[in-house]
C-alpha cells in the first residue's frame, strides 16, 4: 500500500507484529494491534524507530488514544505510522494525535495530506502537535491587553 508522510522521509525497517517483537525487543520496528498495551513499550521507546498502529476500520478509533499515549506519555519520537482504514478526512485528527506517516490507497491522499494543516487555523484542545489552543491564545492576548 502506498506510504505517505509530510516530510517524505519514512523508514524502510520491517515492523514485527507485537507478539514476535516481544521475543526480539531489540528490533527497532514494531506493529501493534489496537488492543495491544502501548504501556509495555515504555522501556524501549528510546530505541524504537518505527511504531505502526492499526485502524481495522476507519471508524475504529482506539489507535488515536494509543498514539497520544506513545507521544505524550511515553515520549516516543520515532516514526508513528497509521495503517488500515486510513482516509484523508481523518488526517486532521491523526496529525494532532502524533501520527507522521500513513499507509493509504485512497486516491488523492498525498495531495490531501499536503493541505491538511491549512484546513483549521484554530484548535481547542491540547494534543501531541503542540499547537497553542484558542484558550491559551486568549490568555496571552489578555495579558498583552489587560483591559480586554
Amino acid at each position: 500500500m502506498p506510504l505517505f508522510s509530510e516530510t517524505g522521509s519514512t523508514t524502510i525497517l520491517e515492523p514485527l507484529p507485537f507478539a514476535d517483537w516481544q521475543q526480539r525487543p531489540a528490533w527497532p520496528a514494531v506493529s501493534l494491534a489496537n488492543t495491544d498495551p502501548v504501556e509495555d513499550l515504555a522501556p524501549h521507546v528510546g530505541r524504537l524507530r518505527l511504531i505502526v498502529l492499526s485502524f481495522p476500520k476507519f471508524s475504529d478509533g482506539r489507535a488515536y488514544s494509543q498514539a497520544r499515549l506513545l507521544r505524550g506519555r511515553l515520549g516516543y519520537t520515532g516514526e508513528l505510522r497509521a495503517t488500515g482504514g486510513v482516509l484523508q478526512d481523518q488526517l486532521p485528527f491523526m496529525l494532532r494525535c502524533g501520527f507522521d506517516s500513513f499507509e493509504s490507497d485512497q486516491k488523492g491522499f498525498g495531495e490531501a495530506l499536503a493541505k491538511t494543516r491549512t484546513l483549521f487555523s484554530v484548535v481547542y484542545q491540547p494534543a501531541e502537535d503542540d499547537r497553542a489552543t484558542a484558550s491559551l491564545l486568549r490568555l496571552s492576548r489578555r495579558n498583552v491587553h489587560p483591559a480586554v
Binding site: 475504529d60 478509533g61 488515536y64 497520544r68 485528527f93 494525535c97
Partner: peptide, 11 residues
C-alpha cells in the same frame, strides 16, 4: 470547546 473536533475522541 474542549470536545469540538477532539482529535482523540471523534471515533
Amino acid at each position: 470547546q474542549w470536545s469540538t473536533l477532539h482529535p482523540e475522541f471523534s471515533f
